[in-house]
């Protein structure tokens, strides 16, 4: 194809997206669109899978049977969501095994927040309430993204996730209205998860590299700073309601803007964790790689068995 032809195709392609048409896997697409989508969708999938670990950490220790089944179901949903997203990636011609390889070798990234440790039961509440809350803000607009398989996966994810945040907030309500010890546990969890949750919505707009292109392709509908503001505005009243204090001395309602003003985020900490030096980066990766390696003989056995079964069937047919 000549350069001019490609340029022509690209213009038509952008026009389709601007008209709100969906792009499907077999449609022509610019190489950059394909690559950006593989990167974003796989990052999203990896985040779901790594995100199972900090919460999985408390399944065996959940304080009641009711909490245990809710947590199990939630962590299981995350496996499902990872699966939907890996499948969406695979429509672009990359296999799940290749994507795992990228994760296991550190080539692919996942959400940094999962590199923080879950040290008390209240962290299950804080993660559901804050981390899932921040994730939903990011995800709901993606139900309308331009790439069909991604949009469809996100619709399913958002539908299923509707209970996740409630699950977390309910844990926090119970703790905040419980004994002084329980309330302290809840406040401590909020103190530890608040700032990482704000960081989770991404670097400030000034430092964000992909935003403009992603906006055009509807991979992103709002800037990181706007999303962060939205998250703060909706979460602070929820903290007030249950009598917990957001750990930010500079947090103040601004009548003029109609938003909360908030303090400085420690971006050095953010970049430290992104670059692999957070409190649990190594543990998380060891857990994922370990599960994959320990599972290898199992996956091989299933394949070998399937082939044997097929051969026997073929022989019978002759």
């Amino acid at each position: 194809m000549s350069e001019e032809q490609i340029k022509n195709l690209e213009e038509q392609f952008e026009a389709r997206i601007a008209r709100d048409e969906k792009i499907e896997p077999k449609d022509w697409m610019p190489e950059k669109y394909r690559k950006t989508h593989i990167r974003q969708m796989s990052q999203h999938a990896h985040s779901e899978i790594v995100g199972m670990l900090p919460e999985g950490n408390w399944i065996t220790r959940a304080p009641s049977l009711r909490r245990k089944v809710a947590l199990l179901a939630k962590v299981q949903d995350e496996a499902g969501h990872g699966l939907y997203l890996y499948s969406a990636c695979e429509t672009l011609g990359i296999s799940r095994d290749e994507l795992y390889e990228q994760l296991h070798t550190g080539k692919a990234k996942y959400s940094s927040i999962f590199n923080y440790p879950t040290v008390t039961w209240a962290d299950m509440g804080a993660i559901g309430w804050l981390v899932d809350g921040a994730a939903i803000i990011n995800q709901v607009p993606l139900c309308n993204t331009s790439f069909g398989p991604y949009a469809r996966a996100m619709i399913r994810v958002c539908k299923e996730e509707s209970f996740h945040q409630r699950q977390g907030y309910e844990i926090m309500i119970k703790l905040a209205s419980g004994t002084p010890e329980q309330k302290e546990m809840a406040q401590d969890a909020l103190n530890r998860w608040w700032w990482p949750s704000l960081m989770m919505l991404g670097p400030t707009d000034a430092e964000s590299i992909h935003t403009e292109q992603s906006m055009k392709w509807k991979l992103k509908r709002k800037s990181n700073d706007d999303l962060r503001q939205q998250f703060i505005d909706q979460t602070v009243p929820q903290a007030d309601l249950i009598g917990l204090t957001v750990p930010d001395a500079n947090l103040k309602w601004n009548e003029e803007t109609g938003h909360y003003d908030f303090g400085e985020i420690d971006w050095d900490e953010f970049w430290q964790v992104v670059k692999g030096h957070g409190p649990c980066n190594k543990e998380r990766m060891n857990a994922r790689v370990g599960a994959w390696e320990r599972g290898e003989w199992v996956r091989d056995a299933a394949m070998a068995h399937a082939e044997k079964k097929q051969n026997r069937k073929d022989k019978q047919a002759v």
Partner: peptide
């Protein structure tokens, strides 16, 4: 949607579970 499985029987079971 889609999923991975070694054979058709497993694919059905996985589909049920997923």
């Amino acid at each position: 949607g889609s999923l991975h499985a070694a054979d058709a029987d497993m694919a059905l079971e996985n589909a049920r579970d997923v």
